[in-house]
Computed example of a mutant assay.
Amino acid sequence: MITAIFSNRLEREVKEPDNEQYYKRGTLAVLGVLRDIERDATPIMISHARGQFISRILSVDKELLVIDYGSNDYDNQVTLEMHSLRVNAEMKGAKVEFSLEQLHEAHFGGLPAFSAPLPAELLQIQRREYFRISAPLDPIFYCHATWPEGGKARLRLQDISLGGVGVLVEGEMPENLPSGDIWRGMRLDMGEYGELQVDAQLLHVGARTTVSSKNETVSTPRLSFRFTSLGPAQERQLQQIIFALERVAREKAMRFR
């Protein structure tokens, strides 16, 4: 999916020598980053040769990293058998990635969990741009908003990231929409994944051009927004949605190979 592309991109980034400056090495440096992930309950994606799942860091100290079990028992058992795992997280403004040789069965708060020694190093890259994933075509996700001069707007979500969204205007659009305006109380309706209410700044008014079945060129207005502020809970919810969409797209891509 977009996931396979994303995963390959991450692997390339880790191997590229230019990323040497982004490595955190040593106990204190690694511990500081992982404690930030734990504190903010940032979702993490654990990937291995036989799959991937979303989890979170439950506890971390100088010697031990404790990670929550996934929601699927089979996935958990398969994960315990793996000897090479990659963990990545999308913090606000940064991407974090590290490798683990193996996860072991443990308990935390009386419940099953994974444990592993603290990694010796991790990669933390400050993002200039956020990873962006396309919204599904079925079901369609919508953005409900109010035009600057009044009136309700229902816009189709085209892509989503931690930084903002791109939407398509289906229907009439006011002329001369001013870039830079803050749109308050936008409601992102993402079906089974839930809703988010956000404030966002309009960055760009453009168009998406496609060719119809009749070989006619169709131009649809496209608006690009940047979130002006996301609370920690909203950021976690949005990251979980992005991870979930990435996983669904990856599974679809594998079925059609």
Rank of each mutant, 00 (worst) to 15 (best):
I2E: 04
R12M: 15
V14R: 12
V14Q: 10
V14A: 14
Y22T: 02
Y23W: 14
Y23A: 04
K24P: 01
G26R: 01
L28C: 01
A29K: 09
V30G: 01
V30A: 00
R35H: 09
E38C: 07
I46S: 07
R50G: 06
I54D: 02
I54V: 15
S55G: 02
R56I: 03
R56Q: 13
V60I: 13
D61C: 05
E63F: 12
L64D: 10
V66Y: 07
N72A: 09
Y74L: 15
D75N: 10
V78F: 01
H83C: 08
V87T: 05
M91C: 09
E97S: 15
F98W: 00
L103V: 10
A106M: 00
A106Q: 08
A106K: 12
F108N: 02
P112L: 08
S115L: 05
A116D: 02
P117I: 04
L118S: 02
P119T: 04
P119D: 04
P119N: 11
E121Q: 13
I125V: 15
I125R: 08
R128C: 01
I133M: 05
S134L: 08
P136C: 00
L137H: 13
P139R: 05
C143R: 02
P148A: 01
K152V: 10
K152Y: 12
A153D: 03
R154N: 13
R154T: 15
I160Y: 03
I160T: 06
L162P: 00
L168V: 03
L168S: 02
V169F: 13
V169I: 04
E172D: 15
E172M: 10
P174D: 01
N176T: 08
N176E: 14
L177N: 06
G180C: 01
G180P: 04
W183E: 06
G185W: 09
M190C: 11
E192M: 11
Y193K: 11
V198F: 04
L203E: 10
A207G: 05
R208H: 05
T209K: 12
V211S: 01
S213A: 14
N215D: 11
T217V: 15
S219W: 05
T220I: 11
L223P: 03
F227G: 00
T228V: 15
T228A: 02
S229D: 05
P232M: 13
A233S: 07
L238S: 09
Q239S: 11
I241T: 13
E246V: 04
A249K: 10
K252V: 14
M254C: 02
